[in-house]
Every structure is written in C-alpha cells, then in structure tokens.
C-alpha cells in the first residue's frame, strides 16, 4: 500500500533499490554527475530504472523539475536513453544477452532545452 501520495509507486522493492541511486546521483544538487554515479546508472537493473522513472524522473508530481534535472545527469553519463522513461525501457529493459535489441540507438548527444 502506497505510503505517500507524492510517490504512489513507492513499492517496498523500490524503497530498497532506490536510495542508493538517489543519494549518489540525484540528491547532490549538481547537474554534473560523479564517475561513481555514472557507473551505478549504467549498471542499474531494470527494476531500479522502473522505480526511478515511476517515482522520480517521470513522477507527475515532480517531473517538471526532476525531469530536466535527471535528463542533464543521465545525458552526461551517456545513459539518457535508458532513463528516458518513455516506456521503451520502463520495466522491460533487456540489457544483457538478447539478439533483438530495438532500443540500441546511439545517444551521444541529446538536444538541450
């Protein structure tokens, strides 16, 4: 049962996997991510991606602020596509194995604002 109306998707599982990334990457107040943060973002599981999307990046309650902020961080880490929260990677991300990857486009540079 959700504990907060602001974070309706905060499941116990999310509560377990989110703090690490939140603390390391999104609670710094800086749009320049650390190497440690980028490493974790790159190795984050689909569960973590889904939780971050649902509760933070694309959470309607905060996405107007966290969206651009997260975008800046994930873009700099080169993982914007993974955290685009557009439904392509949300929850169903397959990053290991698998010969049919439909989400493998290069995202070296994304547009600004």
């Amino acid at each position: 049962e959700p504990q907060s109306t602001m974070f309706p998707e905060m499941t116990p599982e999310c509560a377990t996997v989110m703090p690490d990334l939140l603390e390391k990457c999104f609670a710094t107040g800086s749009v320049t991510p650390t190497e440690d943060c980028c490493t974790d973002l790159k190795s984050a599981t689909s569960t973590q991606v889904t939780c971050l999307c649902d509760n933070y990046i694309a959470n309607p309650a905060v996405s107007n602020i966290t969206g651009p902020y997260s975008k800046a961080i994930t873009t700099k880490c080169g993982v914007f596509d993974k955290y685009s929260c557009d439904g392509t990677s949300k929850g169903g991300e397959e990053k290991k194995g698998g010969s049919s990857s439909s989400n493998g486009k290069d995202n070296g540079k994304s547009e600004g604002n």
Binding site: S4, T11, P12, C14, P19, L22, G29, T66
Partner: peptide
C-alpha cells in the same frame, strides 16, 4: 538553473526519506 537543481535535489532527498520510511515499516 541552479535553483531548479537544488529543488530537484530536495525532491530526491524527499524520495530518499520516503523510501526509507517505507523500508522501516
């Protein structure tokens, strides 16, 4: 801008706390 970033950081901290609260209960 920097202000929005700090707000976003605050949101993250809030989320962090929310998740911790969830874990505790």
């Amino acid at each position: 801008g920097g202000r929005a970033n700090s707000v976003a950081a605050s949101m993250a901290m809030f989320g962090l706390l929310a998740s911790l609260v969830f874990v505790m209960f």
